[in-house]
């Protein structure tokens, strides 16, 4: 089983990673090779086998509804490449 160039481009778009033409071809080749060796998994009979999400922890920890200190705003914004008026600034987005 192989992955087409179009599919590779679609995946790159979903993953938001820009790939130039050469990178796209290399990526397509490498992904196809990796998928190829996973053929063993497709051939196994796994009907009726439950999935394991967590091997050792079977139930989710919970927390009480108790407030904890938030970060000082200065620290929250400190690492941002661009801020304005105490907001994280990004190129304009349209409403969803």
């Amino acid at each position: 089983m192989t992955i087409s160039l179009e599919e590779t481009q679609h995946i790159a778009t979903l993953a938001r990673i820009a790939l130039d033409d050469d990178e796209l071809v290399t990526m397509q080749r490498e992904l196809s090779a990796i998928i190829e060796i996973m053929a063993d998994l497709r051939e196994l009979d796994l009907d009726g086998v439950p999935a394991t999400l967590h091997a050792t922890i079977t139930s989710c920890g919970l927390r009480e509804d108790q407030p904890r200190a938030s970060l000082p705003r200065r620290e929250a914004l400190a690492g941002a490449p661009r801020t304005r008026d105490f907001g994280f600034a990004v190129p304009k987005v349209m409403d969803k």
Binding site: D65, Q66, P67, R68, S70, R73, A76, D85, F86, G87
Partner: peptide
């Protein structure tokens, strides 16, 4: 609730931007 779904930050409405964050 008093706090967010997955962290202890306040859910109070109308606070100055980015003050209820962690």
């Amino acid at each position: 609730t008093r706090t967010k779904m997955f962290c202890g930050c306040s859910t109070a409405f109308g606070a100055p931007p980015n003050t209820h964050v962690c």
